[in-house]
């Protein structure tokens, strides 16, 4: 069942242009020059119920803008969004009753009050039946280990604790979809892993559809069978993470340990990355040559003691994209 449908979504902001020269700020008050900024230019995708989708892309690619349109905060300039049969920005209130939202850098908890107070208020905000609320709280407390700090004021929580509390807060009303914007930002390895385990659990066991943006590709590798990669306001890839690797990761690295140290290695169809004593790293294009051919070529010139072939890391593929936006388009 399709839960989220997005078609040719577009969002253009009018940004005020700062005037320069004499009395610039005064003139700025009187006449406003604006220029259009296409935050999202053409994004289409669908998400089926129960999916866990990573929505990734470099800074400024349009991730947050898309998220804001999906959660009903922003009106698209054009295009269509339908989530569970509703248009988010038109039926905002009914829509937000059925979604959970966590912005990693914001908190929806009452800063000065014990954590449990915010949970209790959420029961009234979403009119959650008491038994249901208790059951959910019990379950999340166990999964996220909230018990030790339920009565601690939010301002005294560590970042990891606060994040866990925010996740629970977003899920108490049994939303069908959970939107997460950078849920692991600023957390240490242990805290990240705990959050990933939790997300995996509620996706699998509770059937919550999850869409998350992140800059931590380990989140994606660990959690998301599917990624939607956007760049320059448009979708450049939509599919399994593994395919992203084969489609865009043409480059392999051959590392050979030679019997003696060398200054330079010259082999056809390969580019020398570095030489560290007896260890030599060569980069080659999978489409132009094979590892076997390259190894043979090296072995023919230099005696080889050991070798490994490195697959491209997802990280490096994405990094290439982030460093050269538009390079995959």
């Amino acid at each position: 069942m399709t839960l989220i449908e997005v078609e040719h979504l577009r969002k253009t902001f009018l940004l005020a242009v700062r005037q320069t020269g004499r009395f610039a700020s005064l003139r700025g008050l009187l006449s406003r020059q604006t220029r259009p900024v296409h935050a999202v230019s053409d994004v289409s995708f669908t998400v089926a119920a129960g999916e866990l989708v990573g929505y990734i892309g470099p800074n400024g690619a349009g991730k947050s803008t898309t998220m804001k349109m999906l959660t009903g905060i922003l009106h698209p300039t054009s295009g269509r969004i339908k989530i569970a049969g509703r248009v988010p920005y038109q039926e905002r209130v009914e829509h937000v009753r059925r979604i959970g939202v966590v912005f990693g850098q914001r908190s929806q908890l009452w800063w000065d009050l014990p954590t449990i107070e915010s949970f209790a208020l959420l029961r009234h905000i979403y009119r959650i039946p008491l038994a249901r609320w208790q059951a959910n709280l019990q379950s999340f407390s166990t999964l996220l280990d909230l018990e030790p700090f339920l009565n601690t004021p939010v301002r005294q929580l560590s970042l990891g604790q606060r994040m866990r509390a925010d996740l629970a807060a977003a899920l108490l009303h049994d939303p069908a979809i959970l939107f997460l914007d950078e849920p692991t930002i600023g957390l240490d390895v242990v805290a990240r892993e705990r959050i990933r385990e939790f997300l995996e659990h509620i996706n699998r066991e509770n059937g919550v559809t999850i869409m998350l943006t992140t800059h931590d590709l380990a989140d994606i590798e660990r959690l998301c069978p599917r990624v939607v990669l956007i760049d320059h306001g448009g979708v450049v890839y939509d599919g399994p993470l593994a395919t992203l690797r084969t489609r865009f990761g043409r480059w392999r690295t051959l590392i050979v340990d030679l019997n003696q140290s060398v200054d330079h290695v010259e082999v056809p169809d390969a580019e020398l990355l570095r030489v560290e004593g007896t260890r030599v790293a060569l980069r080659f294009d999978r489409d132009r040559t094979t590892a076997a051919a390259l190894i043979a070529a090296v072995a023919a010139r230099y005696p080889i003691r050991d070798l490994t072939v490195e697959e491209p890391e997802i990280e490096s593929i994405i990094r290439d994209l982030y460093e050269q936006p538009g390079s995959l388009a």
Binding site: K68, T71, G72, I73, R92, V93, E94, V96, R97, V101, F103, R106, S107, Q108, I125, Y126
Partner: peptide, 10 residues
């Protein structure tokens, strides 16, 4: 920007 959360409540 926290106002966004408060604006998206029922």
């Amino acid at each position: 920007g926290d106002v966004i959360t408060d604006l998206s409540r029922p």
